[in-house]
């Protein structure tokens, strides 16, 4: 479904991703862990088409098609969704207007009829409820003055509405209280299906107790330096990242 080969990415004059490989098949959940500044968010931004992230080498395909040549909006329409580590505040545009525009755009791209205002409102309210956000948040400016945890829940709410095929969650668990963590995890679990895949970026084992990953990868200095099953996350929790420095790179990396 998503195939990343030897991806190298530069931001301004700094090369951040230095040959990253990752295969994500339908229905799989991949967790990515790794030290601060190793390039996890850069991966998410690059995949979603953020301007300024220059691909210097490698390839990314989604269902066989070249993802990297698409505009950000077309990547979203191809089914990619990034829950931002730092969601953007947009005063002056209501959450509702934003969500409706996004949904209409994606429906249009799929040649589907636009949702009626009534159905939309109903679905939006239900999605809010599922992530424990009061429906009044639909009327507020996008993320405007939302608390850290509310912003993260708002990201998951959008994911519930947009029903993407590949969801990248960038530290959606950080800053959440214990109940909210469970709310977010339940949101994700409710969306798990044989067609939908997840890339979950996190620093904490705790989220992975709720969302059981099929694979865990360690991203360090722009590369995946170790991959394993969910037990790897436990190991990391106990030992940190330092011991990885001495490990040989996994097969497939230069």
């Amino acid at each position: 479904m998503l195939s990343i080969k030897n991806l190298q990415v530069r931001v301004e004059d700094k090369t951040i991703l230095k040959g990253l490989n990752l295969e994500v098949k339908p229905g799989e959940v991949h967790a990515i862990m790794g030290p601060n500044g190793s390039g996890k968010s850069t991966l998410g931004y690059t995949l979603s088409g953020r301007p300024g992230y220059e691909v210097e080498g490698g390839s990314v395909t989604i269902d066989g098609a070249d993802l990297l040549e698409l505009e950000a909006e077309d990547r979203a329409r191809a089914g990619l969704f990034l829950a931002f580590q730092y969601p953007v505040e947009i005063p002056g545009v209501s959450n509702m207007e934003f969500l409706k525009a996004a949904l209409d755009a994606q429906h249009k791209a799929q040649d589907k009829e636009p949702m009626s205002s009534r159905d939309f409102l109903q679905a939006a309210r239900a999605a809010c409820k599922q992530v424990n956000l009061p429906a009044e948040f639909l009327k507020r400016g996008v993320n405007e003055g939302f608390s850290g945890g509310e912003k993260k829940r708002n990201e998951i709410m959008q994911m519930l509405m947009l029903q993407p095929k590949i969801c990248i969650l960038d530290e959606t668990d950080s800053g959440l209280d214990i109940d909210a963590l469970q709310v977010v995890a339940n949101g994700v679990n409710s969306q798990r299906s044989p067609e939908r895949s997840f890339i979950v970026v996190t620093h904490y084992q705790r989220l992975l107790d709720y969302i059981k990953p099929d694979f865990v990868h360690v991203l360090s200095d722009g590369k995946i330096v170790k991959s394993g099953d969910s037990s790897l996350a436990l190991e990391l929790e106990q030992q940190g990242y330092a011991w990885l420095q001495d490990q040989p790179a996994p097969a497939g990396e230069e």
């Binding site: 979603s48 088409g49 953020r50 301007p51 505009e71 950000a72 909006e73 990547r75 979203a76 329409r77 990034l82 931002f84 969601p87 953007v88 947009i90 545009v93 934003f98 525009a101 996004a102 755009a105 994606q106 791209a109 996008v142 959008q158 947009l162």
Partner: peptide, 10 residues
């Protein structure tokens, strides 16, 4: 970018 990342065109 945030709006575009949700499928809204430029």
């Amino acid at each position: 970018y945030y709006l575009q990342s949700r499928g809204i065109e430029r």
